[in-house]
Amino acid sequence: MVSVATWNINSVRLRMPLVERFLAEQAPDVLCLQEIKCQEHQFPAKAFADLGYVHQAIHGQKGYHGVATVSRLPFREFSRHDWQDNGEARHVGVELPDHDGLIVENVYIPAGGDEPDREKNPKFGQKLDFLERMTRWAEAIDRPTLLVGDFNVAPLDCDVYDHKALLKVVSHTPIEVETLGLLQGAHGWVDLGRKHIPAPERNYSWWSYRTYWQGKDRGRRLDHMWASPDLAAQSRVHTIAEHTRNWEQPSDHVPLVTEFDL
């Protein structure tokens, strides 16, 4: 059994006590973090190593974005792609040679700004272009792969608290949903969140800091774990660590964890 977790931590240095608490509680074999918001030399590598996560692949930058994958299982760094073609640190992939050569791709897809219009808001166009480049990449994948991270898109009507109200809000617009769907189809990815928690069951991973999260429950499913079809068949348990949103100074995202028979 191998367990993999993904979490947009929204500053790993600020929230390292929460990460330590989560790892002590859940003990995933592999943890993929997004928005670490630090350069590689600033990453709390020793703190992770002290917890047993001695294998680390860090792709960081100053102050923004950044991804890191840490593991108790041996891995080698496998890939780094700049799908935005602008130097931002948004992806790192690793290979676990002792576990069927599993590839774990950790990605932080751009949020896309506030206006869902490529002409008025270049960030929105960059997000769509990022997804299109990922789609070309996914077409060539030829081995069992797990793609995880903050995709910044809630694809299904039931992946947001109010479908009609959010149709013109970035993260749930029809063009984003369509573009993400092309990425999913390019490799036949299986959405593990909906394999194990079928639509239309409630399934959120993000709540804005602007609203009391639990009282109004204005959630969106922005974080995802997708697997190659053969790998998806080996997934046994998928959980959402929603309780972490109640912790002191939480991230606005919560972790997802999937266990595989590997």
Results as ranks from 00 to 15, higher is better:
L222I: 02
T179C: 01
E132C: 02
L102F: 05
H187S: 10
H55C: 09
S251Y: 07
D29M: 06
D85N: 10
K62S: 09
G215Q: 13
V148M: 11
R236S: 12
W206C: 05
V170C: 08
I240L: 14
K216P: 05
D100T: 05
Y161F: 15
F48H: 11
G52T: 09
C32W: 06
Q214Y: 13
Q39V: 06
A233G: 09
V257I: 15
V190Y: 01
F75Q: 03
K168N: 14
L256Q: 11
N106G: 08
E242R: 14
E178C: 05
I9R: 01
H55T: 06
V170S: 06
G63N: 09
P74Y: 07
Q61F: 06
P17C: 07
L256R: 04
E259N: 14
T244P: 04
R76G: 14
F151M: 01
R221A: 06
V70M: 08
I197N: 15
P110T: 00
L222A: 00
R13Y: 04
G219F: 04
G149C: 03
D50H: 10
A49N: 12
I197F: 13
A49K: 10
P174D: 08
W226M: 00
H172V: 04
F48K: 08
E248I: 13
G93D: 03
E259Y: 14
V237H: 15
D100V: 04
P116M: 03
R236Q: 14
V70Y: 12
M225F: 02
L262H: 08
M16R: 04
K168F: 13
K195I: 05
L23E: 09
K120P: 00
G60M: 08
E201C: 12
A111E: 03
V254Y: 12
R202W: 08
A24G: 15
L73D: 05
W189K: 00
A227S: 03
Q34D: 03
A186E: 03
L182Y: 02
R90G: 01
V54K: 14
T69V: 15
T258Q: 04
G112D: 07
G52F: 10
R143E: 11
N203F: 12
P250A: 15
F48A: 10
L102S: 05
A233K: 15
P250T: 09
G63P: 07
L146Y: 00
N203W: 08
A89C: 03
P198M: 07
Y64A: 12
T239D: 11
G215M: 14
P255Y: 09
K164V: 09
H81G: 14
W207Y: 15
A57S: 14
F48L: 13
D157V: 14
K168D: 15
M134A: 00
W247M: 08
S208P: 05
K195H: 11
M1I: 07
S171W: 03
R210E: 02
C158Y: 10
L180C: 01
D252A: 09
D191Y: 11
D252E: 10
I9A: 07
Q56F: 05
F75E: 02
Q39D: 11
A47Y: 01
P122W: 10
P255C: 09
G188M: 01
A154C: 06
H99P: 00
T211Q: 14
Q84V: 13
R90A: 04
Q34N: 04
G185H: 01
H238A: 07
S79Y: 06
T211D: 13
Y161G: 05
